[in-house]
Design a protein around this nucleic acid. Structure first.
Lengths: 220, 220
DNA sequence: CCTTTCCCTGGAATTTTTTCTGGACCGGCT
DNA sequence: AGCCGGTCCAGAAAAAATTCCAGGGAAAGG
């Protein structure tokens, strides 16, 4: 970090708050982190948080909105690019996944924080969901329309496929510490993106490669 | 459950605390829930939490340990059953998945709570988890050994496969509200278990189907 | 029937932690 | 000079965790 000249600190405090907040939220969670701790870590006065965000709750909503706007615009742009490049429907899945993984790498702490908060089941989350997540689902539906049609699969199975696709993309950023501790994988690295994308490619290929008939194995 | 006669209340308070705690944790998270709220919801005296669990932190650790013991023993027993029934390696994956999904359905709130807490990245979580997660990984490695060997896939890809398998099993219980709100699926229902298992069956089939045609001489 | 024991209640006081507010400072800009 | 945005300090106010104490009442044991 650069030395703290009076000038560089100027107008940087807000960013410092966000940065420290995200860092600490990923360690102790939102409710487990005090504004004092954030201010202390950011080397900033306590009152700043209320000043800029109107309290702790305001900071939360700010971060949430910020993530979803970026995430959704990345998703939209990825789909648009893919369509204009004339990619096949499978290749579109891969291209979009790549974009979204890149986005979450760039906003690593933010992504993790938001994913975690979304696992709560309260009023705030439900309100946020209904706007952002519905839009996400709409886009994913469009992205998968062709694939689903080609595979001629039943609707329930199609839901599970989309669900797994989404989860494939978000999981490494929801529990990176698991990947790190258990598999020695670091979702923040560029290498991870490349390797993981190769796996997603395989997943997509298997998805569309074969016909619908299943080998009915003996038991149950 | 019996009505709240004086008898049933006896020795039931501890369970009532656990029940209310889990319910509230799933709404507001651990740190977002006060001991007062738990006691009030349980219709129990405030001091009881400290009395039984030695404080809020003790309650947390109790719940964590309780989940993992049940989860791992279910995993072990599922593997043992599958082995003794002489199931194929693919069928074992499905059988174990079914068992673990059943377990998480039976302990729905507990599972969700633990999964959520695990996404934190602090010292406590790391210590608490490392022993359990390492054991889980050991068991999963054994469960997949044959499948991986048959598929003759490279180690990195094998990791991703196991990762996805685990995630397939836990995801519905980490974010059930997402499935509910966006896909109108309820992971708590028996029907979900059956339908989802059918998807897992497909996933396993796709996993092994096309690789079976590869020559046996793959590298380990 | 009486007594002891154990689980729990009730209502506090105590202590620690956290958020928020009111005002002061400070350097730059007009 | 006087304003203004950004920053800091201290303390109010509120909330939360923990502990204390004085029992009630059912069950178990005599």
């Amino acid at each position: 970090m650069a030395p703290e000249s009076r000038h560089s600190v100027r107008t940087k405090s807000k960013e410092a708050v966000v940065h420290s907040a995200l860092k600490l939220f990923n360690i102790s969670g939102f409710d487990g982190t005090s504004v004092r701790a954030i201010a202390a870590d950011a080397g900033v006065n306590l009152a700043l948080v209320s000043y800029y965000f109107g309290g702790k709750q305001g900071l939360l909503e700010d971060l949430m909105a910020s993530f979803f706007e970026g995430y959704l615009s990345e998703l939209e742009r990825g789909m648009k690019d893919a369509a204009e490049s004339g990619l096949s429907s499978q290749e579109r899945l891969i291209h979009v996944a790549d974009k979204l993984i890149g986005y979450q790498q760039n906003y690593f702490y933010l992504s993790r924080f938001v994913h975690r908060e979304m696992t709560l089941d309260n009023q705030l989350v439900r309100e946020l969901m209904s706007s952002y997540l519905m839009k996400e689902k709409y886009l994913l539906d469009r992205l998968f329309r062709q694939v689903i049609h080609d595979a001629a699969t039943d609707p329930l199975n199609a839901d599970f496929v989309m669900l797994q696709y989404r989860d494939l993309i978000t999981m490494p950023f929801m529990q990176p510490q698991y990947l790190r501790e258990v598999y020695y994988l670091n979702p923040r690295e560029a290498a991870f993106r490349a390797n993981y994308l190769r796996y997603i490619r395989r997943w997509v290929a298997r998805l569309t490669d074969r016909t619908e008939r299943l080998p009915e194995t003996g038991l149950q």
